[in-house]
Design a protein around this nucleic acid. Structure first.
Lengths: 209, 209
DNA sequence: TTTGGAAACTTAACACTGTTAATTATATTT
DNA sequence: AAATATAATTAACAGTGTTAAGTTTCCAAA
């Protein structure tokens, strides 16, 4: 039965080629410049072949967002060594901001674009598991902070919303060019990143006991 | 010279017709369903006529976002009666959330979509004045809070970023369907709105002195 | 009142987009 | 070698924003 195996492998290879090509376009030219025909050109197949491996364009973006979550998870490995949960929370925020600023296109498809969520809605039995896992992670960390008396006890959902909202809000405003004039003159991405770090520092300084 | 005046008025009328038609499509069918041809159909002109009154599609979205800022300014009239700046800050956050949840399409074009900022970038001498004015407004309010000793003194820019980030983050996550599973089961928009109010309440409760 | 010219508007077209039905080519099994 | 299943392609549909070129409409001067 080596033949059916090899066939399956070839299928997965082409699927990977499509995703790699999409990724290349996506990272180098941005979300809007990922088109089925450009993907097809890169992998040297006809445009319709793409549809033999993916239901539609949204599914490609869903898969790209999954890759983004993997990258983010990898980045968060540096959290495991931090014992103090409040310190861990700060570093988590810093990681989040750093990820968004270094991978704006990934951030976009993970947390801003509608495409991946549209894909989930269409496909029955598909869920936003990576995103929800991240939320649960944050909630657990907050619970730990509360249990250890590091921050005031409150509804973890409400606090999680606030904290995720804070970092996502800042990053997405920057990515979509709404924070260029928070200071008088135009503010560089580097400076904005530093300010965001200060913002989470301000928040955690305000809520710790 | 009544004739050149009337001409100018007619020009403005058609411009308004185009914007009204865009708005109708925009509010009823969403951002993606605003197309030049649909606008032209509604006003019963040919598609190319639209280009006699607007440089391109981005400019239409810029104008729509401006209308959004006017609506928001109107909503914020209820702030003038509130003497306590911290109370005013809370109500401002509540207004912001309420506006976003009641006018998701307007919110989208004002704070998420790239189109209006692309328009500003293209047109020389055009600025995001409405947005920047809103930022300045928030900064002044925060300064007042600090001066009156209601919250800890800190960089107003950093705190403004944090607070705007918080509300924008929550609203945009909801609008783009990332917060549906913050609780176990799917969470209704009404419930999410209440939770957002609780979140800003939690924040202000944590930072007041 | 007729004519000239500017302003307003439309037609036709370009170069794209995602997606599907029908068709051809390739590989595997009988 | 013939029949069948798989894989890939061609051609097309229905749409998109946008522009160049051609018409129509309107107003002012002759």
């Amino acid at each position: 039965m080596g033949i059916v195996e090899r066939k399956e492998k070839q299928k997965q290879d082409i699927k990977k080629m499509i995703l790699d090509a999409s990724m290349k376009l996506f990272v180098e030219e941005g979300f809007d410049n990922v088109t089925i025909r450009k993907i097809a050109d890169l992998i040297e197949y006809s445009p319709t072949t793409v549809y033999l491996y993916f239901k539609d364009k949204d599914e490609i973006f869903f898969q790209l967002s999954q890759v983004g979550f993997e990258k983010m998870l990898e980045l968060n490995q540096n959290l495991t060594t931090i014992a103090n949960p409040l310190m861990r929370l700060y570093k988590m925020g810093e990681n989040y901001i750093h990820f968004g600023m270094s991978n704006p296109e990934f951030y976009d498809v993970m947390f801003i674009q509608r495409a991946p969520m549209d894909c989930i809605r269409k496909m029955e039995e598909l869920e936003w598991s990576a995103g929800n896992a991240a939320i649960e992670n944050l909630k657990e960390l907050l619970k730990e902070c509360m249990d250890k008396g590091l921050i005031q006890k409150a509804s973890v959902e409400v606090v999680a919303m606030a904290i995720w909202g804070l970092v996502h809000g800042m990053v997405s405003l920057v990515i979509r060019d709404r924070l260029d004039h928070i200071n008088k003159k135009v503010t560089s991405k580097e400076h904005l990143t530093k300010m965001m770090y200060q913002s989470i520092n301000w928040l955690l300084g305000s809520i710790d006991i």
